[in-house]
């Protein structure tokens, strides 16, 4: 096992654990917590895919510009994950706001109390 494999395995397992929690929990808040864990797992997988073993961070302060292409890791997944984390907070805030409205409407956070769309 090397660094990339360990991080990939961690990311995939975090996704699976988060989805399991989201599917089996009854409490809406606990479902949102599980979603944030799955979100972290997706980010770990993306960054691990962009990592090339033995290379350095894509910041050219000590690396000469001419050697940059052979010494830095892939910067594109990092930019992608940076935006994904910020959007993840936005999505979490939205879910929490709706969860609070549901609690105000029904006085409960148990998902089995909300049966309007159940068939």
């Amino acid at each position: 096992m090397n660094l990339v494999q360990i991080s990939l395995a961690t990311g995939f397992l975090l996704i699976l654990l988060g989805l399991y929690g989201a599917l089996t929990n009854r409490d809406i808040l606990r479902m949102i917590v599980s979603f944030t864990i799955a979100d972290t797992g997706v980010n770990v997988v993306l960054v691990a895919v962009g990592y090339l073993p033995g290379r350095e961070a894509p910041i050219l302060d000590t690396i000469p510009v001419a050697e940059a292409a052979s010494r830095i890791t892939d910067p594109v997944p990092q930019a992608l994950v940076l935006t994904a984390i910020v959007i993840g907070l936005g999505v979490t805030a939205l879910m929490l706001a709706y969860a609070y409205r549901l609690f105000r409407a029904r006085g409960s956070l148990d998902i089995s109390e909300f049966t309007e769309l159940k068939w």
Binding site: L3, S7, N43, V44, V47, A48, G50, Y51, R55, E56, A57, P58, I59, I72, T73, Q78, V81, L82, I85
Partner: peptide, 9 residues
């Protein structure tokens, strides 16, 4: 992420 050479992330 720091170990994976991604300090920004």
């Amino acid at each position: 992420f720091l170990l994976l050479a991604a300090p920004d992330v």
